[in-house]
Amino acid sequence: MIDDVQARERIVVAADALFYAHGVNSIGMDAVRERSGFPLKRIYKLFPSKEDLVLAVLDHRSRSWDSGIARAAETAADPTGRLLAVFDFLAAWFREDDFRGCAFINAYGELGPGSSRVADAVRAQKESFQRYVDDLVGRIGGSPGLAAQLVLLAEGAQTAAAISGSPAAADVARDAARTLIEADRAAARDR
């Protein structure tokens, strides 16, 4: 018998794939049941509402995002390389066959106005990413404004890649990030 922890994980993975591919609103719990292989009774025992399942999916996505950018940063030889590795991570992600943009932006667009819990979860993930980039920028001695600019580049690249269907947005954003980093360094020298 599969315990509740394992069942939760399988249901979340199934729902994540469905929500990401088709949108949250177009997927009913019967589709989650079919994809996960668990009866609706078990799903609703673990996730009393669809919103609870969406929040679990967003938490799963957040952990995947955090570990993905951390792994990409680990491959870099220096602090600047760790910052630019964020865009390398995006480039690899944008090239995946099932890329449909940022799941957090997608969920916010569908549910944010009607679900304060989903909106809060999306904001928390975006704030977490901002703190991560703030830390990386601090390690190179960059200005606080630089971190906000780099995050905006990363977020914009996700949207541009999803809409255009082209992974080139990551490369353009990486080049722009390098330019911003160099300009920030030059401004610091001039002070």
Rank of each mutant, 00 (worst) to 15 (best):
D78W: 06
D66Q: 12
S67V: 07
A92G: 15
L111R: 00
E74V: 06
G114L: 07
W65H: 15
S62L: 11
L90I: 05
D52C: 06
W93G: 10
A121I: 01
D52R: 05
A77Q: 10
D66H: 11
S116Y: 11
R117H: 08
R82N: 09
F89R: 13
I105T: 10
L84Y: 04
R100E: 08
I105N: 12
G68R: 02
S67T: 14
S62I: 13
F104T: 01
A107W: 00
D88M: 05
L83Y: 08
V118W: 05
H60G: 13
S115L: 02
L55V: 03
A56H: 07
R63L: 10
T80W: 08
G81K: 02
A72S: 07
L53W: 04
I69T: 06
V54C: 02
V54M: 00
A72Q: 01
D78V: 06
D66R: 15
F99D: 05
G81P: 00
A121M: 07
Y108W: 14
V118E: 02
G68S: 14
D59H: 15
F104L: 04
E110A: 03
P48S: 04
A77N: 08
T75D: 11
P79F: 03
G114W: 09
S62P: 05
S116F: 09
L90K: 04
N106M: 09
H60A: 14
V86I: 09
G81E: 01
D97N: 14
I105C: 05
A91L: 06
H60K: 09
E110Q: 03
F104M: 07
D78E: 13
L111P: 00
D59S: 15
G109N: 03
V57G: 08
A72T: 03
S62K: 15
C102Q: 01
S115R: 04
F89V: 05
S49M: 04
G114M: 07
F94V: 01
F99K: 02
H60V: 04
A76Y: 07
A77G: 12
A76T: 13
I105F: 11
A76W: 05
D98V: 09
G109M: 00
Y108A: 04
R117T: 06
D120R: 14
E74G: 10
F87R: 00
T80D: 12
D98R: 08
A56V: 06
D78Q: 07
H60S: 12
A70N: 12
A92E: 15
H60Q: 11
G112H: 03
V118L: 04
R71S: 14
V57Y: 04
A73E: 08
L58I: 01
G109H: 01
Y108R: 05
G81I: 02
L84C: 05
A119W: 07
F94Q: 01
D98T: 10
F89W: 15
V86L: 12
